[in-house]
């Protein structure tokens, strides 16, 4: 029974054989946390197991007082009747897949992952297993990411255009992962200073301390009063769009970096001038390739709208199921357009 290893429960995904939760939504006794995004890393649990590469980010997110045990990549450690190891998922710095060995089987919970190269984190490692739990944030064949070099060209073109028109370029993106990836990618092509919203400062610093090379940055809040931002690049979380914080830039062109920007309707609905297709999740080919690479007999799919992926996997000879078919019950907290 796969449910010996994995069972959805109201608190989150539970491993009965090992008596621990993966990315629990409520405080539990023992948690394995895949990565530091807020919908995966929640404070209040008694004990956390995380990958060392993401240790600093986890402490930032969970609070310094939390009991956090760090593990090197592939290090095997026992939990209950299982042996656990963590493997890079390529999602953001320190993001892990959880390998669970127990009851004569191997299950891998991929967490969020991507297959595209990313200078800010270790690449996804295919881990052979019997049972593979995959995300499906972008589980439709319309989602195929363009090469990052093309997106960077596009961003630089946008910056030039903004400079010519004498307006500020405000790029919205998630503060953890996406912002650092964009800063690192741009660093290969320019050396201009980027102005950061306050919500990004500590996270960018944490990446720098982890040895990630990025563009020089300066906090917007410490710019001189009345500074002219024309032609400058500013990065901010999406929540800052339309806020009074924006007023200081005067005329600005706005962009959004997200996988959702692949679809024109999503781009227009949000009202940004420019959409840049950059995602820290696997695209459709990335999802299919990962299923093949791990060689699992059974695939479980998380995240609400995974129906198309499941059906397609079945059509192509895989045993694929929604995670909830394992029984139990777990709230799906994701809306259709969160995570990017």
């Amino acid at each position: 029974m796969d449910s010996d290893l994995l069972l959805p429960r109201p608190e989150g995904l539970y491993c009965p054989a090992g008596d621990f939760f993966i990315d629990p939504m409520q405080p539990v006794a023992r948690a394995v946390v895949t990565h530091a995004h807020g919908d995966h890393a929640r404070s209040g649990s008694a004990l956390y197991h995380v990958a060392s590469a993401g240790g600093a980010l986890m402490r930032e997110r969970l609070g310094a007082g939390s009991d956090i045990r760090e593990h090197a990549w592939s290090e095997r450690f026992p939990l209950g009747d299982t042996v656990i190891s963590l493997h890079p998922s390529g999602h953001i710095l320190g993001a892990a897949q959880v390998r669970i060995e127990g009851r004569g089987k191997v299950a891998v919970v991929s967490g969020d992952y991507k297959r595209d190269p990313d200078p800010t984190c270790e690449p996804f490692e295919p881990v052979p297993c019997d049972v593979f739990v995959t995300e499906s944030t972008f589980g439709l064949p319309i989602y195929r990411w363009p090469p990052m070099s093309e997106v960077v060209d596009d961003m630089l073109g946008w910056l030039d255009e903004c400079r010519e028109r004498g307006v500020a370029a405000v790029l919205f993106c998630y503060a953890l992962g996406k912002a650092q990836r964009v800063l690192a990618e741009l660093a290969t092509r320019t050396d201009r200073t980027v102005h950061l919203h306050g919500a990004m400062l500590r996270l960018v610093e944490a990446y720098r301390e982890a040895g990630v090379r990025m563009l020089p940055t300066a906090p917007v809040s410490e710019s001189a009063r009345g500074k002219d931002f024309a032609g400058e690049l500013i990065m901010a979380p999406p929540s800052a769009a339309g806020s009074t914080w924006m007023r200081r830039f005067g005329k600005a062109s706005t962009g959004f970096a997200s996988g959702w920007m692949q679809v024109r309707g999503a781009r227009r609905r949000r009202g940004y001038d420019r959409g840049f297709v950059v995602s820290d999740h696997a695209d459709w080919p990335g999802l299919l390739r990962s299923v093949e690479d791990c060689g699992a007999k059974r695939i479980y799919v998380t995240h609400g709208d995974g129906e198309a992926l499941i059906r397609h996997l079945r059509d192509t000879g895989h045993d694929a199921f929604p995670l909830r078919s394992l029984g139990g019950s777990m709230p799906d907290l994701r809306s259709s357009e969160e995570g990017d």
């Binding site: 679809v263 309707g265 999503a266 227009r268 609905r269 259709s336 357009e337």
Partner: peptide, 8 residues
Amino acid sequence: GHGRRSGL
């Protein structure tokens, strides 16, 4: 919907 409201 369609266009601007596609997917919702």
